[in-house]
Design a protein around this nucleic acid. Structure first.
Lengths: 238, 238
DNA sequence: GCAAAAGTGTTAACTTTACACCCATGT
DNA sequence: ACATGGGTGTAAAGTTAACACTTTTGC
């Protein structure tokens, strides 16, 4: 393997080592639209291109932790629960040589506060409509596309949609979120019936103020109750 | 990054490079039991240990192709369609240094013919009951366990079970396969009704010979028809 | 003739779908 | 008073789940 080219002490087994990167596909939801978090790169290769937040991992860094760090450095966002999406390994996907990348996936309550790169690797971080992505660096467009597919599949069987909304939300917001992500219309009455049948929303005793029509009730997602039910084998399904 | 330690020409951007491995979780089904394909290692580290078929990839090798090659070299099996399972990246998972591994997943018609290592990296290849795995090299037990989970989820929504059976099979074989993988009993009449309702099995006009009871009819999986239906949005679900 | 597995239908409970009008609020 | 989105129920169709006996074959 390549390390034999370096002048190392000859030991019984050569020391191995990986260079690899992580890329983050982060979803938000705003103005009835699904958004993906992008950065503008400030370093070669692909300087000035738009890209997913991603970078090389350190040698002594766990792959999951690398994703956390890279997301923070490039966007200022921290403490997000990310799931591994897929490893992308085409041999020419990186112009500087063989680098495989592990893509991570998360959905968050969209915010613009604190959305600033912490290092100079990125010029800026911004939200982009998920179905109107520009040309992206590396194979990031393929990665983002794959993320959207996984989001669509996941949202049907896991209650991740609530992570995209603010703490308190209306049933219509949930309804519109599902319609936007699944890209199909869903009967309002049937949707409400189903979502309420799980008995996993806490009805707040207040209505959304300042709307020019009948004020909707507000709800909260009851995560604790969901976790308990899930342990007993309950499966959320829309 | 580490390559700076080597005496390379100084260029504007350092050349990057990954060392990583692939590991294959291959399922077979035999004697009513789910099996996983293992090897006995013939090289350090973990010499003489049992392990999943896996090895380092070459620099100029696509990640998916590496999985094909490694499986062939260690077990003699080729031409299997493998899907990526997960990337495992704990920093200490490989005793020689930082190596991330990409696990691949496939299910095949179990055979002992041609089940022989082609290189000397493995002493032998053999099938092992999936719910009675021995201690395995590296983090391979965790990888195998993850593979079993994915198999259970996948078999409910995709007709991959037929890939585990021989070309011609009986309905009882399918029924027992599902019971074995999902580890629960399934009503015989309801199961047969459902599986026949898809209209995706071709009934052969012959019965299985040489059985000491009523001879069962044989069927074939109609893959072409399934692929066409799938394009139109059909979802197989047990 | 008996052991072993194959094969077969009906009913009740539940889930899903389709569908249209009145209500509360701000301007 | 009107425009806007909020909120509600029922019936028909389809799906799932529970359940037991007869048939064929080799020994």
């Amino acid at each position: 393997m390549y390390l034999l080219h370096c002048n190392m002490k000859s030991t019984s087994l050569p020391k191995l080592h990986s260079d690899f990167s992580v890329d983050c596909v982060i979803f938000g939801f705003d103005e009835g639209e699904l958004k993906i978090l992008l950065i503008e790169r400030n370093e070669p290769p692909f300087e000035k291109w738009q890209a997913l937040p991603g970078n090389l991992a350190y040698d002594n860094e766990d792959i999951d932790e690398a994703a956390q760090r890279v997301l923070y450095e490039l966007t200022g966002i921290s403490g997000v629960f990310m799931k591994q999406l897929y490893a992308f390994g085409k041999i020419d996907r990186h112009p500087q040589g063989r680098v495989i990348t592990v893509a991570y996936f998360a959905i968050i309550k969209r915010t613009d506060e604190g959305l600033h790169p912490v290092t100079s690797y990125a010029k800026k971080a911004f939200w982009c409509p998920a179905n109107d992505l520009p040309k992206l660096a590396f194979d990031h467009k393929e990665i983002a596309q794959h993320g959207i597919q996984v989001l669509r599949n996941t949202i049907k069987y896991e209650p991740i949609g609530f992570e995209l909304l603010s703490e308190e939300f209306t049933l219509s917001q949930v309804h519109h979120l599902y319609e936007a992500i699944l890209e199909k219309s869903i009967d309002k009455r049937n949707f409400r019936k189903k979502i309420m049948s799980f008995d996993l929303l806490t009805a707040l005793k207040k209505k959304k103020p300042g709307v020019a029509h009948k004020a909707p009730w507000l709800y909260k997602w009851n995560k604790d109750k969901y976790e308990k039910l899930k342990e007993k084998g309950f499966v959320f399904e829309i």
